[in-house]
Amino acid sequence: MENLYDVVIIGAGPAGLAAGLYSARAKMKTLILEKDKAGGQIVTTNEVANYPGSIDDATGPSLVARMVEQAESFGAERKKDEIVKVELQDKIKVVTGEKDVYKAKVVIIATGASPRYLGVPGERELTGKGVSYCATCDADFFTDLEVYVIGGGDTAVEEAMYLTKFARKVTVVHRRDELRAAKSIREKAFNNEKMAFIWDSVVEEIKGDGIVEKLVLKNKKTGEITEIDAPEEDGTFGIFPFVGYIPKSELFKDFLETDKGGYLITDPDMKTAVPGVFAAGDIRHKSLRQVVTAVADGAIAAVQAEKYIENTFEN
Protein backbone atom coordinates (compact mmCIF):
# COMPACT_ATOMS: atom_id res chain seq x y z
CA MET A 1 0.00 0.00 0.00
CA GLU A 2 1.38 3.37 -0.93
CA ASN A 3 2.01 6.00 1.64
CA LEU A 4 1.47 3.57 4.53
CA TYR A 5 3.33 4.58 7.64
CA ASP A 6 4.00 2.46 10.67
CA VAL A 7 3.39 5.42 12.92
CA VAL A 8 1.70 8.74 12.24
CA ILE A 9 2.04 11.26 15.05
CA ILE A 10 -0.37 14.18 15.17
CA GLY A 11 1.37 17.13 16.79
CA ALA A 12 5.02 18.18 16.90
CA GLY A 13 5.39 19.42 20.45
CA PRO A 14 7.76 17.70 22.88
CA ALA A 15 5.47 14.64 23.17
CA GLY A 16 5.13 14.20 19.41
CA LEU A 17 8.81 14.83 18.74
CA ALA A 18 9.90 12.39 21.45
CA ALA A 19 7.51 9.77 20.07
CA GLY A 20 8.92 10.45 16.60
CA LEU A 21 12.48 10.10 17.82
CA TYR A 22 11.84 6.76 19.55
CA SER A 23 9.68 5.45 16.74
CA ALA A 24 12.13 6.32 13.95
CA ARG A 25 15.04 5.02 15.97
CA ALA A 26 13.18 1.71 16.24
CA LYS A 27 13.21 1.64 12.40
CA MET A 28 9.51 2.27 12.06
CA LYS A 29 8.39 4.42 9.14
CA THR A 30 7.37 7.53 11.02
CA LEU A 31 5.58 10.73 10.10
CA ILE A 32 5.09 13.70 12.40
CA LEU A 33 2.27 16.06 11.39
CA GLU A 34 2.05 19.63 12.64
CA LYS A 35 -0.53 22.23 11.76
CA ASP A 36 1.63 25.34 12.06
CA LYS A 37 4.88 25.44 13.99
CA ALA A 38 6.96 22.64 15.45
CA GLY A 39 7.24 22.77 19.18
CA GLY A 40 3.74 23.38 20.45
CA GLN A 41 3.22 25.62 23.44
CA ILE A 42 6.80 25.39 24.67
CA VAL A 43 8.20 27.49 21.81
CA THR A 44 6.25 30.45 23.09
CA THR A 45 8.04 30.11 26.43
CA ASN A 46 11.26 31.94 26.90
CA GLU A 47 12.73 30.23 29.90
CA VAL A 48 12.76 26.51 30.60
CA ALA A 49 14.58 26.17 33.89
CA ASN A 50 13.31 22.82 35.08
CA TYR A 51 13.94 20.43 32.20
CA PRO A 52 16.56 18.08 33.65
CA GLY A 53 19.86 17.98 31.81
CA SER A 54 19.17 20.92 29.54
CA ILE A 55 21.99 23.35 28.97
CA ASP A 56 22.13 26.71 30.77
CA ASP A 57 19.68 29.29 29.47
CA ALA A 58 17.63 26.70 27.60
CA THR A 59 14.66 28.31 25.89
CA GLY A 60 11.55 26.68 24.48
CA PRO A 61 12.73 27.20 20.89
CA SER A 62 16.25 25.89 21.56
CA LEU A 63 14.97 22.71 23.21
CA VAL A 64 12.50 22.07 20.42
CA ALA A 65 15.05 22.76 17.68
CA ARG A 66 17.24 20.03 19.16
CA MET A 67 14.30 17.61 19.48
CA VAL A 68 13.44 18.18 15.81
CA GLU A 69 17.06 17.59 14.85
CA GLN A 70 17.18 14.34 16.83
CA ALA A 71 13.89 13.01 15.45
CA GLU A 72 14.96 13.79 11.88
CA SER A 73 18.42 12.32 12.37
CA PHE A 74 16.79 8.96 13.06
CA GLY A 75 14.67 9.28 9.94
CA ALA A 76 11.34 10.66 11.12
CA GLU A 77 9.54 12.63 8.40
CA ARG A 78 7.79 15.88 9.22
CA LYS A 79 4.96 17.51 7.33
CA LYS A 80 2.96 20.65 7.85
CA ASP A 81 -0.72 19.89 7.45
CA GLU A 82 -3.83 20.61 9.45
CA ILE A 83 -5.77 17.45 10.23
CA VAL A 84 -9.47 17.72 9.57
CA LYS A 85 -10.66 14.12 9.94
CA VAL A 86 -9.48 10.84 11.42
CA GLU A 87 -10.73 7.28 10.95
CA LEU A 88 -9.06 5.19 13.61
CA GLN A 89 -11.31 2.18 14.25
CA ASP A 90 -9.89 -0.14 11.57
CA LYS A 91 -6.55 -1.90 11.48
CA ILE A 92 -5.25 0.67 9.00
CA LYS A 93 -5.90 4.16 10.30
CA VAL A 94 -6.66 7.04 7.95
CA VAL A 95 -5.71 10.58 8.88
CA THR A 96 -6.98 13.28 6.53
CA GLY A 97 -5.34 16.68 6.37
CA GLU A 98 -6.09 19.80 4.35
CA LYS A 99 -3.26 18.88 1.99
CA ASP A 100 -3.04 15.08 1.95
CA VAL A 101 -4.31 11.75 3.30
CA TYR A 102 -2.07 9.61 5.47
CA LYS A 103 -2.41 5.92 6.32
CA ALA A 104 -0.84 4.27 9.34
CA LYS A 105 -0.74 1.14 11.46
CA VAL A 106 -0.53 3.28 14.59
CA VAL A 107 -1.66 6.81 15.35
CA ILE A 108 -0.19 8.71 18.29
CA ILE A 109 -2.28 11.71 19.26
CA ALA A 110 -0.06 14.48 20.63
CA THR A 111 -2.15 17.50 19.77
CA GLY A 112 -1.65 19.15 23.15
CA ALA A 113 -3.64 22.02 24.55
CA SER A 114 -4.12 25.66 23.78
CA PRO A 115 -4.62 28.69 26.02
CA ARG A 116 -8.09 29.16 27.38
CA TYR A 117 -9.84 32.38 26.46
CA LEU A 118 -11.37 34.61 29.10
CA GLY A 119 -14.63 34.61 27.17
CA VAL A 120 -15.39 38.29 27.76
CA PRO A 121 -16.65 40.93 25.32
CA GLY A 122 -13.88 42.58 23.33
CA GLU A 123 -11.36 39.78 23.82
CA ARG A 124 -11.56 38.22 20.36
CA GLU A 125 -11.84 41.53 18.50
CA LEU A 126 -8.77 42.93 20.25
CA THR A 127 -6.56 39.84 19.98
CA GLY A 128 -3.43 41.03 18.21
CA LYS A 129 -4.48 44.58 19.12
CA GLY A 130 -3.18 44.52 22.66
CA VAL A 131 -4.62 41.21 23.82
CA SER A 132 -2.05 38.44 23.48
CA TYR A 133 -1.55 34.85 24.60
CA CYS A 134 2.08 34.71 23.47
CA ALA A 135 4.53 36.77 25.51
CA THR A 136 7.56 35.85 23.39
CA CYS A 137 5.69 36.86 20.21
CA ASP A 138 4.43 40.20 21.38
CA ALA A 139 6.53 41.43 24.32
CA ASP A 140 8.42 43.86 22.06
CA PHE A 141 5.28 45.88 21.41
CA PHE A 142 4.90 46.66 25.10
CA THR A 143 8.36 48.10 25.68
CA ASP A 144 7.89 50.93 28.21
CA LEU A 145 4.12 50.42 28.26
CA GLU A 146 1.94 48.92 30.99
CA VAL A 147 0.78 45.33 30.87
CA TYR A 148 -1.91 43.38 32.72
CA VAL A 149 -1.50 39.62 33.11
CA ILE A 150 -4.66 37.72 33.95
CA GLY A 151 -4.26 34.59 36.09
CA GLY A 152 -2.35 33.40 39.13
CA GLY A 153 -0.82 30.06 38.19
CA ASP A 154 2.77 29.20 37.32
CA THR A 155 2.42 30.23 33.67
CA ALA A 156 0.76 33.55 34.45
CA VAL A 157 3.37 34.58 36.99
CA GLU A 158 6.36 33.36 34.97
CA GLU A 159 5.15 35.13 31.85
CA ALA A 160 4.46 38.26 33.91
CA MET A 161 8.06 38.25 35.08
CA TYR A 162 9.30 37.78 31.53
CA LEU A 163 7.21 40.77 30.48
CA THR A 164 8.84 42.98 33.16
CA LYS A 165 11.94 42.91 30.96
CA PHE A 166 10.01 44.97 28.43
CA ALA A 167 7.08 46.69 30.08
CA ARG A 168 7.23 49.65 32.45
CA LYS A 169 4.92 47.92 34.88
CA VAL A 170 3.22 44.51 34.96
CA THR A 171 0.08 44.02 37.02
CA VAL A 172 -1.17 40.52 37.77
CA VAL A 173 -4.95 40.30 38.05
CA HIS A 174 -6.03 37.19 39.94
CA ARG A 175 -9.45 35.97 40.94
CA ARG A 176 -8.29 34.73 44.35
CA ASP A 177 -6.48 36.49 47.17
CA GLU A 178 -3.27 34.51 46.76
CA LEU A 179 -1.26 33.13 43.86
CA ARG A 180 -1.54 29.50 42.91
CA ALA A 181 1.98 29.56 41.42
CA ALA A 182 4.76 27.54 43.07
CA LYS A 183 6.49 29.14 46.05
CA SER A 184 9.80 29.70 44.24
CA ILE A 185 7.99 31.58 41.48
CA ARG A 186 5.83 33.57 43.90
CA GLU A 187 8.83 34.77 45.87
CA LYS A 188 10.57 36.04 42.75
CA ALA A 189 7.42 37.81 41.68
CA PHE A 190 6.87 39.57 45.02
CA ASN A 191 10.50 40.75 44.96
CA ASN A 192 10.23 42.17 41.45
CA GLU A 193 9.66 45.91 41.83
CA LYS A 194 8.02 46.24 38.41
CA MET A 195 5.24 43.85 39.45
CA ALA A 196 1.94 44.80 41.04
CA PHE A 197 -1.09 42.71 42.00
CA ILE A 198 -4.85 43.14 41.92
CA TRP A 199 -6.59 40.45 44.00
CA ASP A 200 -10.04 38.87 43.99
CA SER A 201 -10.77 40.29 40.56
CA VAL A 202 -11.93 39.02 37.19
CA VAL A 203 -12.11 40.62 33.77
CA GLU A 204 -15.58 41.77 32.74
CA GLU A 205 -14.80 43.40 29.42
CA ILE A 206 -12.00 44.69 27.23
CA LYS A 207 -12.68 47.85 25.26
CA GLY A 208 -10.96 49.81 22.55
CA ASP A 209 -11.37 51.19 19.08
CA GLY A 210 -9.06 48.95 17.03
CA ILE A 211 -6.58 48.81 19.90
CA VAL A 212 -6.88 48.04 23.63
CA GLU A 213 -7.86 51.17 25.56
CA LYS A 214 -9.77 49.98 28.61
CA LEU A 215 -9.91 47.00 30.95
CA VAL A 216 -13.01 46.50 33.07
CA LEU A 217 -12.52 44.46 36.25
CA LYS A 218 -14.96 43.20 38.84
CA ASN A 219 -14.02 42.48 42.42
CA LYS A 220 -15.50 39.09 43.25
CA LYS A 221 -15.83 39.82 46.96
CA THR A 222 -17.33 43.30 46.86
CA GLY A 223 -18.89 43.30 43.38
CA GLU A 224 -17.18 46.61 42.72
CA ILE A 225 -16.44 47.45 39.08
CA THR A 226 -13.14 49.15 38.22
CA GLU A 227 -12.34 50.61 34.83
CA ILE A 228 -8.67 50.86 33.96
CA ASP A 229 -7.93 53.30 31.14
CA ALA A 230 -4.78 53.41 29.09
CA PRO A 231 -2.49 56.18 30.33
CA GLU A 232 -3.01 59.16 28.07
CA GLU A 233 0.62 59.40 27.00
CA ASP A 234 0.63 55.69 25.97
CA GLY A 235 -2.79 55.42 24.36
CA THR A 236 -2.84 51.66 24.95
CA PHE A 237 -1.60 48.81 27.14
CA GLY A 238 -1.22 45.07 26.96
CA ILE A 239 -3.47 42.30 28.29
CA PHE A 240 -2.07 38.78 28.54
CA PRO A 241 -4.55 36.14 29.76
CA PHE A 242 -2.99 32.95 31.16
CA VAL A 243 -6.02 31.29 32.71
CA GLY A 244 -5.39 27.66 31.93
CA TYR A 245 -5.65 25.47 28.87
CA ILE A 246 -8.14 23.54 26.84
CA PRO A 247 -7.22 20.20 25.23
CA LYS A 248 -7.22 19.97 21.43
CA SER A 249 -9.35 16.85 21.46
CA GLU A 250 -12.19 18.03 19.21
CA LEU A 251 -11.44 15.50 16.43
CA PHE A 252 -11.26 12.56 18.81
CA LYS A 253 -13.76 13.09 21.60
CA ASP A 254 -16.66 11.41 19.83
CA PHE A 255 -15.03 8.01 19.82
CA LEU A 256 -12.29 8.19 22.46
CA GLU A 257 -12.93 8.45 26.16
CA THR A 258 -12.25 11.84 27.74
CA ASP A 259 -12.37 13.26 31.23
CA LYS A 260 -14.64 16.14 32.27
CA GLY A 261 -12.21 18.66 30.86
CA GLY A 262 -11.99 16.93 27.46
CA TYR A 263 -8.55 15.37 28.01
CA LEU A 264 -8.06 11.89 26.54
CA ILE A 265 -7.96 8.93 28.90
CA THR A 266 -5.17 6.39 28.41
CA ASP A 267 -3.74 3.53 30.39
CA PRO A 268 -0.18 3.79 31.78
CA ASP A 269 1.12 2.54 28.39
CA MET A 270 -0.50 5.55 26.66
CA LYS A 271 -3.08 3.27 25.01
CA THR A 272 -6.56 4.59 24.37
CA ALA A 273 -9.49 2.19 24.23
CA VAL A 274 -9.08 1.89 20.44
CA PRO A 275 -6.36 -0.62 19.42
CA GLY A 276 -3.42 1.08 17.71
CA VAL A 277 -4.36 4.54 18.93
CA PHE A 278 -2.17 6.14 21.58
CA ALA A 279 -2.14 9.56 23.20
CA ALA A 280 0.84 11.44 24.64
CA GLY A 281 1.61 14.77 26.25
CA ASP A 282 -0.72 17.55 27.36
CA ILE A 283 -3.71 16.06 25.54
CA ARG A 284 -3.81 13.23 28.13
CA HIS A 285 -5.62 13.21 31.42
CA LYS A 286 -2.73 13.46 33.89
CA SER A 287 -1.50 15.34 36.93
CA LEU A 288 1.53 17.21 35.60
CA ARG A 289 1.78 18.85 32.18
CA GLN A 290 5.42 19.72 31.60
CA VAL A 291 8.02 19.10 28.88
CA VAL A 292 9.55 16.38 31.02
CA THR A 293 6.28 14.44 31.29
CA ALA A 294 5.40 15.07 27.65
CA VAL A 295 8.62 13.51 26.34
CA ALA A 296 8.19 10.56 28.71
CA ASP A 297 4.70 9.97 27.35
CA GLY A 298 6.02 10.17 23.80
CA ALA A 299 8.74 7.61 24.44
CA ILE A 300 6.32 5.18 26.10
CA ALA A 301 3.77 5.57 23.30
CA ALA A 302 6.39 4.85 20.62
CA VAL A 303 7.72 1.76 22.37
CA GLN A 304 4.19 0.45 22.89
CA ALA A 305 3.39 1.24 19.26
CA GLU A 306 6.26 -0.98 18.18
CA LYS A 307 4.97 -3.84 20.35
CA TYR A 308 1.47 -3.38 19.02
CA ILE A 309 2.66 -3.50 15.40
CA GLU A 310 4.73 -6.64 16.06
CA ASN A 311 1.76 -8.40 17.62
CA THR A 312 -0.88 -7.22 15.17
CA PHE A 313 0.81 -7.15 11.79
CA GLU A 314 3.74 -9.52 11.85
CA ASN A 315 2.47 -12.97 12.72
Binding site: K37, G39, T44, N46, K80, T136, C137, D138, D140
Partner: peptide
Protein backbone atom coordinates in the same frame (compact mmCIF):
# COMPACT_ATOMS: atom_id res chain seq x y z
CA UNK B 1 7.39 39.40 12.34
CA UNK B 2 10.09 39.41 15.03
CA UNK B 3 13.08 37.39 16.15
CA UNK B 4 11.21 36.08 19.20
CA UNK B 5 8.07 35.05 17.30
CA UNK B 6 8.22 31.35 16.47
CA UNK B 7 4.80 31.21 14.75
CA UNK B 8 6.06 34.03 12.48
CA UNK B 9 9.13 32.06 11.50
CA UNK B 10 7.01 28.99 10.78
CA UNK B 11 4.70 31.04 8.56
Amino acid sequence: WSDGCEPCKAL
